[in-house]
Structure formats: C-alpha cells, structure tokens
Amino acid sequence: MNTAVLEIAGLNRFFGGLPAVQNVTLKVEAGERRLLLGPNGAGKTTLFNLIAGDLKPSSGTISLFGRDVTKLRTDQRTQCGVARTYQIITLFAKQTLAHNVVLSLLGLRKRRWNPFADLGAETALWERAREVLALVGLGHAADRPVLETSYGERRRLEIAMALAQDPKILLLDEPLAGLSADERFEVQRLLERIPRDVTIVMIEHDMDVALAFADRITVLQRGQIVVEGTRAEVVADPKTREVYLGH
C-alpha cells in the first residue's frame, strides 16, 4: 500500500545557464504531508512549477502515481489528479467566488466542451461549489465577486478551488502567507481536516504551523536538497541550522 505518489529523479532546471533546481531526487508516499523548506530563491516554487507542468525540466523525470508525466502538459497532469494553489493569487477577479469554484469543478468534467448548454443551469455544479466554499468557511460569500473580498478570503478561495478538484496530490504554495493570526488558525484547521487519501506537498515559511503539520521535511538551498527526513531528524540536523542562519 505504501506506494510513491510523487517520484522525482535527477531533476534539473536552468534559467539561462543558472540552475534553479539542481539534481533533485524526491519521493513522496501516499497520504504523506511533505514540507518544502528553504530560503527565498531556493527553488521551491520552481520545483512546484516543474511538478505541475508549468515549466519543463532541463533534464530528469517526474512520475505521478507511478506514471512518467515528464512530457505531459499542465492540464493533463491536472486530469491525473494534481491540484495546486499559487503563491501569487490568480483568480477570476470579476467573477463571484462560486463561479471560480464552478470553473474549477468544470475543468475535470467532459461537459466543459459543451458550447450550447447554459452553465448557469448546471445546478449540480453550483451546489457542489457552495458546499466546497462552505468547507473553507466562505459559504456566506459565494455570490460576491472576488474583487470585493479580503486577502484572507482569497487565500481560502484558492484552497477551495484546489479542493474542488478532488485531487490525489495537493501542492500548496505558501497557503498562510499574508494572513492574520486568526485566519492562519482557520486555514491551519482547514488543512488538518483534509483526509489522508490526499497527499500534500507544502511550501510554507510559518515554521510553527508547518512543522506541526508535516510528516517529513525537505530542505532546499540554491536548488539542491540539503537535508531530508522526519521532523525530528531535520530539526536536529546541523545543516538545517546552517541553511537558516546562513553560516
């Protein structure tokens, strides 16, 4: 039962000769909560972009659910069961929250190709969207346009859109960034409630939350993996301290 959901082997990505991700080899087991740590510019988001398919690797392979997806496009990987949130929020700003989630639900359904039906009449989708929004505590705001919501609400909408996809693996890029203490707590509780059949890989700078959440931690620096192990192992490793204190 302990199969790898995400397997990365010898992954490299260069930007104009400069390595952003260097020789990364990584294995994430089903149901695991994996935390990616590292200073700014360590290549964490680039790694996410490579896993999601937004970037093509210079070399190396990426496998999801035992299948080599290195050559697949982003949308094809999404169809395999990958969902992600973005560090910089990218939402459909003029649309309502419910509409955003409906687009997310629709993306995995064949009906998205229908050019004649009325999307507004797809009641099942809209109901499901409201359910998902209620899950992240935004049930009351479903009909508000994104433009009129707060930053914290948008962060939660990001997560709702990812959850709506029923992903097998969820990539969270700094889900707590820029939130108030109360909001952090709410999002933290929300993440804890995600069932274990969803594997989660998370980038997060809030160490308290992140460490409490993660099973295993990977520390990156200058595009390379420096330390990897369980919470206790990584915290105890002197190299972690080195990366963070810059010695």
């Binding site: 937004d54 949308d75 999404t78 990218t90 459909f92 687009l103 629709l106 190709w113 050019p115 999307l119």
Partner: peptide, 25 residues
C-alpha cells in the same frame, strides 16, 4: 453562457490558472 464559452473567457483572464484547473487552453 455555455461551459465551453465560459472556459474560453477563463483562458482570456487567467490562461495559466485554466491549465492548472485541467483545461487544455
């Protein structure tokens, strides 16, 4: 107003997001 038309409008506003949502832009 159709699912397809709304998808197209999504690709206009946020193409990258749309492919992350599973749409072949």
């Amino acid at each position: 107003h159709s699912p397809f038309g709304q998808s197209l409008q999504g690709t206009r506003d946020q193409p990258r997001r749309m492919s992350a949502l599973g749409y072949n832009v």
